[in-house]
Design a protein around this nucleic acid. Structure first.
Length: 937
RNA sequence: GCUCGAGUGGCGGAAUUGGUAGACGCGCUGGAUUCAAAAUCCAGUUCUUUCGGGAGUGUGGGUUCGAUUCCCACCUCGAGUACCA
């Protein structure tokens, strides 16, 4: 009987769907296990072979856990709001919902073909109103909350109001805007409703504020820091400029410390945790307030080296610093203003590219040293960033290289405050080996002690305090786009009001055009029906806006990461209309046991989702404050591009090895036109594009050989391999096993379709253990000891491999097992039945077919995993490697009963040993019973 | 620059606590089968060699009876980050 994979796979895919084989119940006596994949954005290009890599790995794990008796939740859905569908809508006028729908069905078709064990009854789409209803609900919860730094906990704003009414904000330790003024209870009570509302916005966890944002003109929207790479937009590579705009922001900075600490308990890849740690960027130091000569007020700086305070020889402010205007002297005004104007004009990118150029201007003002009273010149310079710390630094040229460079460039003094170090040529920044000198009361102290002493002295003087700074900034949450979640927000006198959650969802309105309006408003400004009627509690026509009962709605939409920040909780109880998930379902599933996805989400999705989880946990909506116990990053599958070489200024293509040193242009050729031996199908190439129709070819041995290069798999490089084609030609089981066979899951590795025959042949060989030409050849014969050994060796190894996520080595193990069983001519049911179960996580279709052909009438998916028994592996002899000076020369099969002395005696008596020694007497003989023998001398 | 990660045959990769380097697969070579091809099967395949052997896991050192594995220095590639005070 032939292994007819197409027929088998279609049959079982249908069976699984009809029988809901993988439906997970929210109540079970079995222990739970939640296996999650990062859900995809359904792009128009469909899946290529790189996309399912992580899904296959997680599917193997999910299926394995089912065999091991767990109630497994393994869901899938779509992150279906996003830019590409909207860009397409702008070009074609087609509603993004339609293209998204079409793309999703294409994705679903492709996913179904690979035989994943997803519980599709829980499918979710972030662009579905029944889903984003809860995204809007969470937004409202954030708006109605503030962060108590004392308790490190999010709390309802109603509690904050109660504090303000009785105590003002003097004793309050809360996350809030930097410019929040202090006020007393009387002060609060004296404010009118609008003023109070303005004040509360400074505390809310999502707030509306004027902020310098990253504006991307080409995309027509603002971007978050993690959406910008090397100063250009991550998507499309467009320039980004700074712009002041009123935007919704998320106060994620309030959670910086918890996001950092929470990493400790997570079984996530260390490099990924490092990325998050760096992004959060905690630094411990002090805030120092310098008085200014002849001026009111102070200049505050943040420093991680309070111990170097006696080494300060100047100060530098960011050009944007508020004090610059106030303190600049008349003599210096012209120079300062010119410098400030010049810096403002430069884009972020120019400033980044131009790090080595030292620029700055003296303001004419002097700060006063808190201990010596010495006058310190105040400069401005663009090496100081307005957005970090206080936007000002105390410059210690002997201890900081940038300050040193600046001082040398402008001829400023470089006083040395380090014992035994010369700092004339370069700064000394080694904290560990620091001994302070020339520094009054801290002379002779090391870094730690000196820092503590300085902080204490500053606090006493009221001129500073210990301070921890984080690099993590609040995240801009507004996007000037159409295809995203609408905010449940309307405006009364310019102040935002939340729509009552019971009226959610606020559905995305219809618009004529998906572009910004003529007045520069976001696309929702084109909507005719986009106003909130506070009496009817519904969205009504804009013409009804009277600012009394009908108000304008928010025109921005939420960013891509809104839905993905909580979707994993929704799967636990997808479809619930009364809550984002029931408390019972949340209590049962709790968290994700295994999460697989790409590391490119380290500073985006994986940080934001942890933030929302902690927030919802604080308010009692979730049972745990970290949602993914274990996370694995799958590596990227790279494409193997093919190149043809065209002689310059001609239409002649030269085969790779004939190019020599002639001037040629390398052009990507579609990999589908190239065979496994790198030969180009010349006729197909001519038909590929009109410009190649009359191309000439210089062939070698009648063949055109292409060049190969490993690159990222992408349409533009014509190296995309489609999983559908592979499934058609070799079957899903082959695809699954080959993707795993390629190499370690976490590693990037090139795809090469040529190698797939090895895995395919293996499955054919497996099939032949069960079937002869026409019939099942499995017998009830007692298996041989050898066969039992092959099986149990495999059980042990495969189980260990799955637990360690080493799926590539499992595939090898299966190959070895089948090779051995074939050599043994084993057709025993006692071996082949457990083998089918063992294979089922990797190659579920063939396993299901074999299982049923062996007489079972329920799915193999819930069969118990074979139990490893040590007794079948017990050996009486061992083939010892006999080494001389560490080099293996020959082997000897010896009984494992022999002790050290006996082994040594037998080995020394062997002729080959004497040959090797050539008459010499060994200095030493190392015998490790069961392992090796090493003869030294 | 800083922080991580990785360097093993022609290729993908294996070697789980320091113990037979190159498992398994691709590719290649030879053979069987076939009118022929595909498919299948068998044998070989790290390099080098005077066929005894010798060398060999990025480079140089070290620890050890023994190092792909541990330590030190360096080189190359990849990822993250980028004036963060």
């Amino acid at each position: 009987m032939k292994y007819n994979f197409n027929e088998i796979e279609a049959k079982w895919q249908k069976y699984w769907a009809e029988n809901q084989t993988f439906k997970a119940e929210n109540q079970s006596d079995k222990p739970k296990f939640y296996v999650l994949d990062m859900f995809p954005y359904p792009s128009g290009a469909g899946l290529h072979v790189g996309h399912p890599l992580g899904y296959i790995a997680s599917d193997i794990y999910a299926r394995y856990k089912r065999h091991k008796g767990f109630n497994v939740l393994h869901p899938m859905g779509y992150d279906s709001f996003g830019l590409p569908a909207e860009q397409y809508a702008i070009q074609t006028g087609q509603h993004p919902a339609l293209t998204t729908e079409a793309n999703i069905s294409r994705y679903r078709e492709q996913l179904d073909q690979i035989g994943f064990s997803f519980d599709w009854s829980r499918e979710e789409r972030t662009s579905d109103p029944s889903f984003y209803k809860w995204t809007q609900w969470i937004f409202i919860q954030l708006f109605n909350s503030w962060y108590d730094k004392g308790a490190e906990k999010s709390r309802p704003v109603s509690e904050l109001v109660a504090i303000f009414e009785t105590k003002g904000n003097a004793e309050l330790v809360a996350a809030c805007d930097d410019d929040t003024p202090g006020f007393t209870a009387e002060g609060w009570n004296a404010m009118n409703a609008e003023e109070q509302e303005q004040m509360l916005l400074k505390y809310r966890l999502t707030y509306l504020a004027d902020a310098e944002v990253n504006w991307c003109p080409a995309l027509g929207t603002v971007l978050a820091n993690d959406e910008i790479v090397n100063g250009v937009s991550e998507r499309g590579g467009h320039p980004v400029v700074r712009k002041k705009m009123t935007q919704w922001s998320m106060r994620i900075s309030a959670f910086a410390e918890r996001l950092l600490q929470g990493l400790e308990g997570l079984d996530w890849p260390e490099p990924l945790k490092d990325i998050q740690r760096n992004w959060i960027g905690k630094s411990v130091g002090a805030q120092v307030h310098f008085n200014i000569k002849d001026h009111e007020g102070q200049i505050s700086v943040f420093t991680t080296r309070p111990d170097t305070i006696f080494g300060v020889s100047f100060m530098t402010l960011a050009p944007e610093h508020d004090l610059v205007k106030k303190i600049t002297t008349n003599e210096q005004r012209e120079a300062v203003e010119a410098y400030v104007a010049a810096t403002a004009k430069r884009s972020e990118r120019e400033r980044m590219a131009d790090v080595k150029n030292i620029t700055g201007v003296f303001t004419g003002a002097y700060a006063l040293h808190p201990f010596t009273g010495e006058e310190i010149p105040v400069w401005i310079g663009d090496y100081v960033l307005a957005g970090y710390g206080t936007g000002a630094v105390m410059a210690v040229p002997c201890g900081d290289q940038r300050d040193h460079d600046f001082a040398r460039h402008f001829g400023l003094p470089i006083p040395n405050i380090f014992e035994g170090v010369d700092t004339t040529e370069e700064a000394f920044a080694d904290k560990e080996n620091t001994v302070i000198a020339n520094s009054d009361f801290i002379s002779g102290m090391p870094y730690k002690e000196a820092s503590a002493a300085v902080i204490a002295a500053l606090e006493e003087k009221g001129q500073g305090e210990g301070k921890i700074n984080y690099r993590l900034r609040d995240a801009v949450f507004s996007r000037q786009r159409y295809w995203g979640e609408p905010f449940p927000v309307y405006y009364v006198n310019g102040l935002p009001k939340m729509i009552d959650p019971e009226h959610l969802p606020i559905a995305l309105p219809e618009v004529e055009k998906y572009l910004p309006t003529e007045t520069g408003e976001p696309p929702l400004g084109n909507a005719a029906v986009w106003a909130w009627d506070t009496t009817a509690n519904t969205v009504v026509d804009n013409s009804l806006i009277d600012h009394k009962t009908v108000f304008p709605l928010e025109l921005n939409t939420m960013p891509g990461w809104a839905g993905s920040s909580w979707y994993f909780n929704r799967y636990m109880d997808a479809g619930n209309a009364d809550a984002f998930a029931s408390q019972e379902a949340l209590a049962y599933w709790k968290d994700v046991d295994l999460y697989i996805g790409g590391s490119e989400h380290a500073t985006g999705h994986l940080l934001y989702s942890r933030f929302w989880q902690k927030f919802l946990f604080d308010l009692g909506h979730l049972p745990v404050d970290e949602y993914a116990k274990k996370l694995i990053n799958q590596g990227m599958i790279l494409g193997t591009s093919a190149f043809v070489y065209r002689l310059e200024n001609s239409n002649t293509f030269v085969s790779k090895n004939l190019v020599g040193d002639r001037a040629v242009q390398a052009i990507h050729a579609d990999v589908s036109m190239v065979n496994a031996s790198d030969e180009l199908d010349v006729e197909a190439f001519k038909l590929w594009r009109p410009e190649f129709a009359d191309a000439e070819f210089e062939m070698e041995d009648g063949k055109y050989v292409v060049g190969r290069e490993v690159e990222k798999m992408s349409k533009s490089k014509y190296n995309v391999v489609n999983p559908d084609d592979i499934c058609q030609e070799y079957g899903a089981d082959t695809l699954r096993m080959y993707e795993m066979f390629l190499g370690p899951l976490e590693q990037a590795k090139p795809w090469n379709t040529a190698g797939i025959t090895g895995v395919h042949n293996f499955l054919k060989k497996l099939w032949k253990l069960y079937f002869g030409k026409e019939e099942l050849i499995v017998t009830d014969e007692q298996p041989s000891a050898e066969s039992l050994k092959s099986l149990h060796k495999t059980i042990k190894k495969v189980e260990e491999d799955i637990e360690n996520f080493s799926f590539n080595t499992s595939v090898s193990t299966f190959m070895i097992c089948v090779n051995e069983l074939t050599a043994q001519k084993c057709h025993s049911r006692a071996i082949l039945e457990p083998l089918a179960v063992l294979m089922s996580p990797y190659a579920p279709h063939i396993a299901e077919e074999l299982w049923h052909k062996l007489g079972h009438d329920t799915s193999v998916a819930h069969a118990a995993f074979p139990v490893f028994e040590e007794k079948y592996l017990v050996e009486s002899t061992k083939t010892y490697p006999i080494s001389f000076n560490g080099k293996m020369r020959f082997t000897m099969e010896l009984s494992l009963d022999l002790n050290k002395e006996e082994i040594e005696k037998v080995v020394m008596a062997d002729e080959r040993t004497q040959d090797q020694l050539g008459g010499r007497t060994p200095k030493k003989v190392i015998v490790v019973p069961g392992k090796i023998v090493n003869i030294v001398g």
